[in-house]
Amino acid sequence: MLADQSLTRSLVRLVAPIVWRSDRKMASKLAGFAATEAGSALDMLKAAELCDDKKLRRLFFRHAMDEARHAKMFRAHSRLLGKESDLQESEYMRSSATRQNLYQELGLVRFLAFVYQAEKRGEAHFDSLRRHFAGHPSLEKLFEEIGKDERFHVAYSKSLLKRLQDSGREKEVKQAKRSIAVQTAWASWRRAGKRIGNVLSWCVLAITYVVVVPVFALVQRITDRGAAHGWQRRRLPEGSVSEMRRQS
């Protein structure tokens, strides 16, 4: 985990000057953050909706409200930095919040492990950005303020996991932490694999298009009676179960 955090910090240090190089880029990045935080808010709200334990519910709910507030703050700063007109497109593409339904998919213990690890990464990320923007009139304060909430999220998810550990579910918690860490790494690995796979399959399909398809396109051209136009008359097949079983 510590290695993970220091990796995050080093990466941010390395890429921040490029990624955050202009007001427009900053505005676009902040709009992206707003969308991510809004998505997290929806996931935490869903967790609050589905879980039964009153204490957990309240904590998830508070977490959701924090994320919603962050989304608003990011959006407001994004608007301040970017000219509204320049930003509209990126906001248009990125401002919608997507829920990942993590609570339903992971179950309580793994969900908590996920929150803990994600927030820990988030804390490191925002802390690095706070340092990067030291002296900036608005962003230093923004990241500092959000960082405070992230620390709370790390603390409460850690203490909940500890409480579960102390209640005799130590093995389960350890397993969950491990499995989430592995899952996160596996997801990144797969993303990379998928990207390369996509490129490769494009190449294969392009070759097929150039080598295989021309022959058939030629046959099509020879046999084609031309694309139909104008009204067509066709009798619907007799409505029956056996006819409706057909996909054609």
Partner: peptide
């Protein structure tokens, strides 16, 4: 679905060679 696939195949062949990306 199969009838839809047939229409897509035929319109892709009609559009050849303009439809590389859509074909893929």
């Amino acid at each position: 679905p199969l009838r839809k696939f047939e229409r897509i195949l035929v319109s892709q062949l009609r559009a050849f060679p303009r439809g590389l990306r859509q074909f893929g």
